[in-house]
Write a protein that binds this DNA or RNA. Structure first.
Length: 207
DNA sequence: TGTCCGATTGGT
DNA sequence: CCAATCGGACAG
């Protein structure tokens, strides 16, 4: 995929990433899934972002780097989350990929997840990292490279994209209720159907 | 070094 | 609702 989409702000890039294929080539084989859910983390001003206040540490370093690279972090001592770094270098923004619709290498995903229900393979940020074998080793990888990369797949019209508040960021202050989660309308592969959500509205109204 | 806690998941 | 389980952030 062309890098220009990654140069946009996280808020602009998140909905555009829906419908793209996330692919991971490993010695075990190729696994791929279509992105159906993503959240924007908007940088220093965003209370929910790891880069809030400009926090720059070994963990968040990738977010400060050039766009189109992987920001992977571990959580709860047992899961990983995968983000696409967006915005120009120096602007620590990222898009959390929250769910995929399996699209290739499904047997490999089933083996890694230890289950076969396609609805449960990648319906959550931790689940998709396990299914795709994304972990510490993929931290910082260039997503325009040959190992972990995105590909054009299909497009969704604004009418097919819904928004809701982000998941599990109640700790965040003023940005807790921002409608910065984007997902494909009626997709059974979304991590969880939010209580409240609306059809996508204009970018301006999201701010 | 010590303490605290989470952008989750799976089971009650 | 709740526990699992540990790397990372930060205070001292």
């Amino acid at each position: 995929m062309n890098r220009d989409i990654f140069e946009k702000s996280a808020l602009e890039a998140a909905p555009l990433l829906l419908g793209k294929l996330l692919c991971h080539r490993t010695p075990e084989g190729l696994a791929a899934g279509m992105i159906v859910e993503a959240e924007a983390y908007c940088g220093p001003e965003d209370d929910a972002a790891h880069s809030f206040g400009g926090r720059r540490t070994a963990r968040t370093e990738a977010m400060f780097g050039p766009p189109g690279h992987a920001y992977v972090f571990s959580i709860y001592g047992m899961h990983h989350c995968f983000n696409v770094v967006t915005a120009p270098e120096g602007a620590p923004q990222a898009v959390l990929i929250r769910a995929l619709e399996p699209a290739g290498g499904t047997p490999l995903m089933e083996k890694r997840r230890g289950l076969s229900d396609p609805l449960l393979l990648c319906s959550g940020p931790g689940k998709l990292c396990q299914a795709m074998a994304i972990g510490r080793a993929q931290y910082g990888l260039d997503l325009c490279g040959k190992e972990l990369f995105l590909e054009e797949f299909r497009d969704f019209s604004p009418a097919e994209i819904c928004v809701s508040p982000r998941v599990n960021v109640d700790y965040a202050g003023t940005h807790r209720d921002r409608l910065w989660r984007f997902f494909v309308k009626d997709s059974p592969y979304v991590s969880k159907v939010p209580r409240r959500y609306t059809s996508r509205v204009t970018l301006a109204s999201l701010r």
